[in-house]
Amino acid sequence: MINIIINKISRLLSGIGHRMIARIWRLGAGARLFILAIIYSGESFKRFHLTLREIYFTGVMSLLIIIVSAFFVGMVLALQGYNTLQKYGSSEAIGVLVALALVRELGPVVTALLFAGRAGTAITAEIGLMKTTEQLSAMEMMAVNPIARVVAPRFWAGVISMPILAALFSMVGVLGGYLVAVPLIGVDEGAFWSQMQANVDVRADIINGVIKSVVFGVACTMIALFEGFDAPPTAEGVSHATTRTVVISSLTVLGLDFVLTSFMLVV
């Protein structure tokens, strides 16, 4: 009886251990891909149209979802904020609330989450399928390095697109908040903007938001690329990898956000 229990526990522990080792192995492989992507980036800048093409697919194609979501997020923020602020008689502060929430947190974070769902999955599926259909092998046999030709341009496209999308998200969100607060609710327009300008700092808030979005851009793109590269070459493998891209990207973005925010508030 006791033997069986001990046996079960030890099997459970070794299972956890195996899984941990697998995770760490993947982390290392991902880091290696990241470094290789940086090393072989020369091509993506020398022949910039390769990167432009990927910016088109990751950035431009994500414009619509980003703008529409930002607009609604801004409007909801203004509605909710007004509801609470007017209880304390400071409904003019609604501009500050909307702007700070967007610029500091929601802009970079929600953009990164949407990016992972929209562009990240596309990258993973595309690379996974290229691997499944031996396109990457074919490229390698043609003496073309797939990391320089496939990974690096997509990596830089993601890193460039993310801050642009996040800035757009924040700006459109503020406009959405403005539309609800000023014409709809009737908050004074001058107070809305001036309170906002007095309390949103360019360095501490806007630049930090941009820094966040760049970091998220690196993380999301790299995770999507790695999952695609690492996917088992089957239909099931690619579909699992796509799911993992969304899950891991989202968790990573939220975790990184906490770390970055605590750094930024302390320094």
Binding site: A167, S170, Q197, V202, I206
Partner: peptide, 12 residues
């Protein structure tokens, strides 16, 4: 434009 707008119109 969005970044400029953030800096000018939203920020200080």
């Amino acid at each position: 434009a969005a970044l400029l707008g953030l800096a000018m119109k939203v920020g200080n």
